[in-house]
């Protein structure tokens, strides 16, 4: 299956010639220069590497690039291309939901995906529960919680 594959990344068609064993995280950061997606634990435990694949939040450290051939990938650099993502970014900025900032892209992408799920907007409690896969090592959770609650009110 080796050979270049096509991906749509943040709305742009990209061809990448990645080895079969390469992770999507490394393709995004090192082949495409999209350093917003962070490597935290590299084992699916921290959420810092969260991106959207076909609109679904996905751990790019546990995804082989070749598995998502042909798919549409959105990173934090592209999350503001539509309204919900922009609102999430604005809420994080406004509430100061950022300390060292390393976890922020993962939180922003994961929350955007949750808010874009079909059906009624989830309760703030459920949103926070479903953000449980994203860790903030600074423990800046109080401001993150404020941002979640604020943006939930805006999109509801």
């Amino acid at each position: 299956m080796s050979g270049p594959i096509a991906l749509t990344v943040n709305g742009r068609r990209r061809r990448v010639d990645a080895p079969d064993a390469e992770r999507l995280l490394d393709t995004l950061r090192w082949r495409l220069g999209l350093k917003g997606t962070k490597e935290g634990c590299r084992s699916g435990a921290c959420g810092a590497c969260t991106v959207l694949v076909g609109g679904r939040s996905t751990l790019s450290c546990l995804t082989l690039t070749h598995e998502v051939a042909g798919a549409s990938v959105t990173t934090v650099e592209g999350i503001g291309r539509e309204a919900v993502g922009r609102r999430v970014q604005a809420a994080f900025a406004r509430e100061g939901a950022v300390q060292c900032g390393y976890c922020t892209p993962g939180f922003v992408v994961a929350l955007t995906a949750l808010l874009r799920e079909p059906g009624p907007v989830a309760s703030a409690e459920r949103l926070l529960e479903d953000l449980g896969g994203n860790l903030c090592r600074c423990t800046g959770y109080a401001a993150i919680r404020r941002a979640v609650e604020a943006v939930r009110r805006e999109v509801d």
Binding site: G44, V53, S57, T58, D130, G133
Partner: peptide, 9 residues
């Protein structure tokens, strides 16, 4: 099991 993003895969 894991997190939302993990359960997507």
């Amino acid at each position: 099991v894991g997190s939302v993003a993990l359960r997507h895969r």
